Simulated scan of single mutants.
Amino acid sequence: MYPSAPPDAYNKFSAGAPPTAPPPATYQLPTMNTPRTGGGLTRWSTGLFHCMDDPGNCLITCVCPCITFGQVADIVDKGTCPCLASGTVYALICASTAMGCLYSCFYRSKMRAQFDLEEGDCPDFLVHFCCEYCALCQEYRELKNRGFDLGIGWAANADRQRRGVTGASVMGAPGIPVGMMR
């Protein structure tokens, strides 16, 4: 009567098995000791306006963006300028000129170069000028999705990699089974 459609022709959220969760992320620092390989540019792991993918970071960035900037800058600078110093410089620039975006856009460019990320439709300075908090949140999420624990800084991340530690879990907190997530 009706021709049968291939299984992938149906909407994946209709009847049938629920969508599968992605495999758990492993803790790898891809550009720490390994050279970048040639090839095309990669996409950001999350969009610019996906701030609520990490509501905790979104709140911290809205209240005190110098914290998020300091954490991102510490990882991007590979520990040469600590989180506190970068965050303080950013806060002073914001307090004196209200143009911290001019400072933070350089770190976005530096991060894109390190991870071969595409620039997108707007240049980095324009992204930071128009959407400073969203840009900081996106950079934070990108580093987090690449296996960095931004709360411990570059030195501790490098030490974890040297020791071969996989996964960045909170001490004492049980893992959440994939089947229990909504």
Rank of each mutant, 00 (worst) to 15 (best):
A15I: 02
G16I: 07
A17M: 10
A17L: 11
P18D: 07
P18T: 02
P18V: 01
P19N: 08
P19V: 14
A21P: 01
A21R: 10
A21F: 10
P22F: 03
P23T: 02
P23H: 04
P24W: 04
P24I: 00
P24T: 00
A25Y: 08
Q28L: 10
Q28I: 09
L29F: 05
T31E: 13
T31A: 06
N33P: 00
R36H: 10
T37C: 01
G38L: 11
G38H: 09
G38R: 04
G39L: 05
G39P: 06
G39M: 06
G40M: 07
G40R: 02
R43Q: 08
W44K: 02
W44Y: 00
T46H: 15
T46C: 02
T46R: 10
L48C: 01
F49I: 02
F49G: 01
C51E: 07
M52D: 14
M52V: 12
M52P: 00
M52K: 03
D53H: 05
D54V: 07
D54T: 04
G56C: 13
G56P: 00
C58T: 14
L59R: 04
I60S: 12
T61E: 12
T61L: 11
C62S: 09
C62W: 12
C62M: 09
V63N: 06
V63Q: 09
V63Y: 08
C66Y: 07
I67C: 13
T68D: 03
T68K: 07
T68Q: 10
F69L: 05
G70S: 09
G70P: 07
G70F: 13
G70H: 07
Q71F: 08
A73G: 09
A73K: 02
A73Y: 12
A73E: 11
D74L: 12
D74E: 14
D74F: 08
I75H: 05
V76N: 12
V76S: 12
V76W: 06
V76T: 14
K78V: 04
K78R: 15
G79N: 10
G79W: 14
G79C: 11
G79F: 10
G79Q: 10
T80E: 15
C81V: 15
C81S: 13
P82D: 15
L84H: 05
L84T: 09
A85M: 13
A85I: 14
A85T: 14
S86Y: 04
G87D: 01
G87Q: 11
T88G: 15
V89A: 14
V89P: 02
V89S: 06
Y90H: 09
Y90E: 14
L92S: 06
L92N: 00
I93Q: 12
T97S: 15
T97Y: 11
A98K: 12
A98T: 05
M99R: 15
G100Y: 01
Y103F: 12
S104A: 11
S104K: 07
S104Q: 06
F106I: 02
F106M: 04
Y107Q: 03
Y107V: 00
Y107T: 03
S109W: 02
S109E: 14
K110H: 13
M111P: 06
R112W: 03
A113P: 00
A113D: 09
Q114N: 06
Q114L: 13
F115K: 02
F115L: 05
D116I: 00
E118S: 03
E118Y: 01
E118H: 05
E118D: 11
E119R: 09
G120I: 01
D121Y: 13
